[in-house]
Design a protein around this nucleic acid. Sequence first.
DNA 1: AAACGCCGCAACCGCCGAGGT
DNA 2: AACCTCGGCGGTTGCGGCGTT
Length: 344
Amino acid sequence: MGRAPCCDKAGLKKGPWTPEEDHNLINYIQLHGPGNWRTLPKNAGLQRCGKSCRLRWTNYLRPDIKRGRFSFEEEETIIQLHSILGNKWSAIAARLPGRTDNEIKNYWNTHIRKRLLRIGIDPVTHAPRLDLLDLSSILSSTLCNQSILNMSNLLGTQALMNPELLRLATTILSLKQESQVPFPQNLQENQLCNFLLQNQVQPLQPNQYQAPIQEGFSSESNQLMQANVEGFLSEVATFGNSQENSIASNLNEDFVCQPNYTYCSSNPIAPDLAENPNFQSLNNSYQNFSFDSAVSTPKSSPTPLNSSSTFINSSTEDDRDSHCSNLLKFEIPESLDIDAFMLI
DNA sequence: AAACGCCGCAACCGCCGAGGT
DNA sequence: AACCTCGGCGGTTGCGGCGTT
C-alpha cells in the first residue's frame, strides 16, 4: 500500500522560510507547543507542510539550538560517536547539547569526512587506509628531507604492505628515536644497508628493499596513492615523538590489515562512553596493540597528554587535521610476535 | 566586472517503525 | 491482522555565498 502523503502538497509553499513564517511558527509553538505537526500549519496560518514546520523548528528555530562553529571538543565527540554509532546522527546529536542531527550530518559531510580522508582515515570504518599507506614515505618524511631521500621513488609502490619495508621502517624509526644515531642526510640508496649494518641494526639485505616495482601498480596509481596518503603519513611520522599518538589495529593471519583506531575517552562531553559496552569492546580489542612497540618510542616519554588538553583554540584546517590525527591510537598487543608477523 | 566553479548548509524526499483504530 | 497516521531518520538536492580566473 502506498504511503499517504503527510499533507496535501498542492498550494503549499516550499523552499527557504521567510522571517514572517518563522515568526508565526515560533509564536504558535510558544503558545501551544509543538503538538500535532499535521494540523499545526493550518492553525498557525502557514502554507507549509507539517513536516516542513517540524524540520524548521527542530533544526533552526528551537531556542536551545547552539549555532556557530563546532568546537574541537564537539568535533572529537562527533568522531568518537560516529566510530561507534555510524551515521546515527540523531543519536550523536543527543550527546551534543544544542546541536541538531542535521547540523551534525552536514558538518560531518562537509568538514570531518574530508578531513579524515585527507589524513588517510576511512570515514566509514574509521580505519587508517593502509591500502593507500606507503610506509616508505614515513621514512622519507621522518628521516630526511624528501628531496634527499625519496624512498617512495627508490622502492616503488611495492612498499605498500611490504612486511620487510615495515620492518625497515620500524628499524629506522627505532634507530632514530632511541639510539639517537645521527642519520646521514645525504644517504644514497646503496648506502642505507651499510649504514644500518654499521650501526648494528638488524641486517637487511639490499635486495629486500630494492625489489622491482610490483606488477599491477601503475605509475598513476602510485602517484594517486602517494597524494592521498601524504597528509596522513606526515601525521603518522610524528607518532614517534608523541606518546599520545597510538593506533589500534586488528591484524589477521593473512596480514590483511583491518586496522581500526579508537580515541582517548577523555572528552567530558561523552564521559560515559567508556561505560558503553560497545565502546569497551572496541577499546579492549585495541588496548593490547601498541604502536610504541613497533616504532620503539621510548616508554619513558612524558605522561600521555589528555587529548582534550591539547586543544589549540585555532580554527585552521591544519590544526584540526592535526587534532584529528592526534585522536589516533596505534596499539600492538604485546603477545603479537612481530617477527613472525612480518615473515610472509 | 563578469563568468565560472566550489563549498556549505538549509530544506526536501522517501523510507521506516511505533502506535492507534 | 490490516490499515492508517504520525514522527523521526538518513540521504540527497539545490541555492546562495564566496573565491578564482
